[in-house]
Write a protein that binds this DNA or RNA. Structure first.
Lengths: 227, 227
DNA sequence: GTATTAACTGACTGACGGTCAGTCAGTCGT
DNA sequence: ACGACTGACTGACCGTCAGTCAGTTAATAC
């Protein structure tokens, strides 16, 4: 009898429906201003039911983050699987990350927010692990591309793929967060000073600076670094 | 009669005392878990009184951040005023930022948290401006050092001091936030993979990569970039 | 048709941010 | 010295919200 299997499927489906609802509310209000009552209403369930599927508001928040991770992972995988030379692949990944920031702005902001250790301590061990795993998959893609480039002589032999994947990841994030902050805080002082700055170009330039430092002398000859 | 002046002084002093108390609680609990009742108790005042001095919990949080900005600003100014060559000055600033992260870890975390736009929208216009200003002073120090290095031929003429100060700032922050996240999230999976990584060195290396890209050909001859 | 199980509900609880009518110490004018 | 006044301070109170749980409903098993 397939009753148990069907029940299992329905349960997973319900979990997804709750994330659908939670996502909208969190995007709109952020963690602090979102209420479980509103999420329940949007999901057409009672508040109590939400707690049958997720342990806490924070767990639900992290579940939405996991969905975001899946989206970003797919974008990274596509960017890394075009068959182009490795130096182009890393560029593609950088572009993919920037595209993610622009197209999935709300997820990006949730990512930033979730790094907060106070939040992490509110999340169940289980959910934290699930989320950490999906996050590591993303880093793995970057690491693999760097490894590949090291092997084919694009990057210096002393480059550590793990370390450089950390650095590139942290750098891109840091720059995008800064851009986001400057754009969203309506301080005239800063806005005026930055009126000349082309943030899209700045992101590309800054990432290229790091990549340039990783290149072998040979590869640098074919790489034009613009500042 | 100096009564009014004395009252004014006492009022400022009281504001500082409240920050003293708030700081301890926010360091310990973070914004969400901290309660105004606990801050009031620590400050030996009633909750109502806190609201005579600060408009909201979020405003008080930002007031603590401003204090942190002052500390970091002083560290940057000292790092930039040793009279050493400009390339060393930028290195000093990078070191100062890292020292701040290590010595004033709690402030650093609050800085990260405060970039969140949902928080910003809860803060009064006035406090937001005050805090943005103190933040811009810090960036100004970096910008001035880059400008100086550009003039003395250390950095390429096409380098934009404003842009590069953004990039360096965002980069260092991004890397430190990542380090902090890896260290604080007790995920065995990540910990094992990173057992070999020397994060202090990684920070220095990654920052040097950016600086290297900014150097003129001449300056690169005297700069050893280790990966 | 009845018993059992599982999904779901929503009223309730405790905690917390923020308010405001009222208290009281210190100051001023006479 | 004394009453009037000011403003710093208080804490009981309000509305809101995360999380709980006794009870209802619907589906399945026998």
């Amino acid at each position: 009898m397939g009753t148990a299997e069907r029940k299992e499927r329905e349960k997973l489906h319900r979990k997804e429906e709750i994330i659908d609802a939670a996502e909208k509310v969190f995007f709109d209000k952020g963690l602090a201003m979102a209420t479980m009552d509103e999420i329940a209403e949007r999901a057409e369930l009672s508040k109590g039911t939400l707690y049958l599927y997720y342990k806490s508001k924070e767990d639900l928040y992290m579940a939405v983050i996991c969905r975001g991770h899946q989206i970003l992972l797919k974008m990274f995988q596509q960017a890394a699987a075009t068959g182009e030379p490795t130096i182009k692949l890393l560029q593609n990944i950088g572009e993919a990350y920037f595209a993610f920031y622009k197209r999935h702005h709300d997820y990006f902001r949730m990512f930033s927010f979730s790094e907060n250790s106070q939040l992490q301590s509110q999340v169940s061990e289980e959910m934290r692990m699930t989320c950490a795993e999906s996050g590591q998959c993303i880093g793995g893609v970057v690491q693999a591309v760097i490894q590949q480039g090291k092997e084919d002589g694009t990057y210096r032999p002393e480059v550590s793929p793990l370390e450089m994947s950390f650095v590139l990841w942290a750098h891109c994030r840091g720059v995008m967060e800064l851009i986001d902050h400057i754009k969203s805080v309506p301080s005239d002082g800063i806005k005026r000073a930055c009126s000349e700055v082309d943030f899209d170009k700045l992101y590309r330039k800054s990432t290229a600076m790091l990549v340039y430092a990783m290149l072998t002398e040979e590869a640098r000859k074919n790489f034009k670094l613009e500042l």
